[in-house]
Amino acid sequence: GVGETMPFFNQESLQQRLQALIDGARESWAYAIFWQSSSTSDFATPSVLGWGDGYYKGEENKNKRRASSSSANFVAEQEHRKKVLRELNSLISGVQAAGAGSVGDDAVDEEVTDTEWFFLISMTQSFANGNGLPGLAMYSSSPIWVTGTEKLAGSQCERARQAQGFGLQTIVCIPSANGVVELGSTELIFESSDLMNKVKYLFNFNIDMGSV
């Protein structure tokens, strides 16, 4: 039931909610991330938002952004990204050696897009309360919606500028009781209460719609 407490620390449940959020959306979101708050009853310890789970869906029109694919920088960067993916894949394959097995070379040797890379490096990031877009959303208990290259590039938040550098045009952070839901897109997507309501429903928490 909607009124029940959501099992926030169940990653399967989180993954399903993240997928439901953007797979069923009219807008084309590239990814959804749940930044999980370090829950502590010690009020002297500041809370930190760290990686909870993420769902990467991909871009709809990624072919149109391949203009620079022949440049030396592009080639070197792709080599670096593929090397990191191979290393990560080795770690994962080692983990599941007794089970499902490796995902295979074809999943690591293809071009690693900017948004895929942004999603992957997000796993290494964390935000103190009030810092970065997710931390700011958490601190203010208000959704943050940034649309457009100029607004992202001009943001005081490093994560917004980083997102812009990797070709994202829209980034949204919506706070929850236990963390922050972030969505990103390479398309221009403007603020809608529809998405807020979906997050509110799927993640079962209260946000102040009056503050949006």
Binding site: G58, L88, D106, A107, L120
Partner: peptide
Amino acid sequence: DGDLPITRKKSLERFFEKRKERMTMVSPY
């Protein structure tokens, strides 16, 4: 250092699975 937190491991597993699906969905034409 080879010691990934479990949430990252799960997320990476899914990322690679989905990536493989996307790669195999690409049209050969």
